[in-house]
Amino acid sequence: MSIYEISFSPTGGTKKVADFLANELSRDITNVDLSNGKEDFHRFSLTKEDVAIVAVPSYSGRVPSTAAERISKIQGNGAKAIIVCVYGNRAYEDTLVELQDLVQQAGFSVVSAVAAIAEHSIAHRYATNRPDEKDYEQLKGFADKIGDKLKRNDFTTPAIPGNRPYRKAGEAGVVPKPTKACTRCGLCVVRCPVGAIDPSNPAKVNKKACISCMRCVSVCPHQARKVNRLLLAVVNMMLKKACTERKACELYL
């Protein structure tokens, strides 16, 4: 079985989950990086014999708008989709049901859904080092069940939690800034999924374009981009109650 792994993963947590599931199901994997703003997503056209893992992080309980726009350009043509949302141990709310609607509108047929946990991309104290061994054990069991369902030619769509209309999308707001350690190497400029960083001066960020994905922070070789400490403290405080208790991965089959 060949797999298309279609993922939006600015800081790598979502891709860890997608990679694991894809490798459990197949060794024939085609990667489609939704984080690559230079990619022409119209060129990806699947067939009804194909299977796709479509994975996104949950941003305030919704699919990131950038990922949604890029998914809509891919032609599903009846391919089977395993949809995955990854969140930082708070809640994923309407992310999965919105992702279901997006991939179905793009021509995919949803056969299963997974919600998984990865280290929070802003407040790293929550879900630190996840997915961990326990998560991967759970995900392996999920992959086995999904694989069995596909082998049985059972392409039914499971009931997936969430609300329509979706919850109101949150605003970005958390915009990382360079510190004195910045060497202007330009890696953050190249890797920004939405081109929000000025190529001539990495200290300048288009706040309206920035989606607070934290990729610039994660890819900087000098750890020279940071979130304002006071703002980070506020984020940590706001998330404390919801994020302290460990959440488990979930499968919808």
Rank of each mutant, 00 (worst) to 15 (best):
C192I: 08
S26V: 08
Y92A: 02
P202R: 05
C85D: 14
K180C: 00
A115E: 03
Y252C: 01
G88K: 05
E93Q: 10
A123S: 08
A172V: 09
R62W: 08
A248H: 13
S2A: 10
G170I: 11
N31Q: 12
Y59L: 06
A203E: 09
N89S: 06
M237F: 15
T66I: 11
V175E: 07
E98M: 13
I6P: 06
C243A: 15
N36E: 06
L99P: 05
A118G: 07
P165C: 07
V111F: 04
E24N: 09
T66W: 06
R62M: 07
K16S: 12
P161Y: 01
A169Q: 10
C188R: 10
Y87N: 03
D19K: 02
D33N: 14
V190G: 04
S218C: 01
K38Y: 06
D154N: 15
V189H: 01
Y4V: 12
L34H: 09
A91I: 11
Q100P: 03
L150D: 04
Y92W: 10
L25I: 07
Q105D: 14
A18R: 15
G61I: 02
V54S: 03
S109Q: 13
S9K: 05
A248E: 13
L46S: 05
K247T: 00
Y87L: 00
V205S: 13
K168M: 14
G76I: 07
R70T: 08
Q105E: 14
K208P: 00
I71G: 03
G173E: 13
P193D: 01
E119Q: 15
T156Q: 11
A203T: 12
V63I: 12
N201I: 12
Y59G: 04
G147I: 11
Q75I: 06
A106K: 10
L232F: 14
M1V: 08
C220W: 00
T14W: 04
R90F: 02
C220G: 07
A118S: 13
E98W: 10
K207Q: 13
D132N: 13
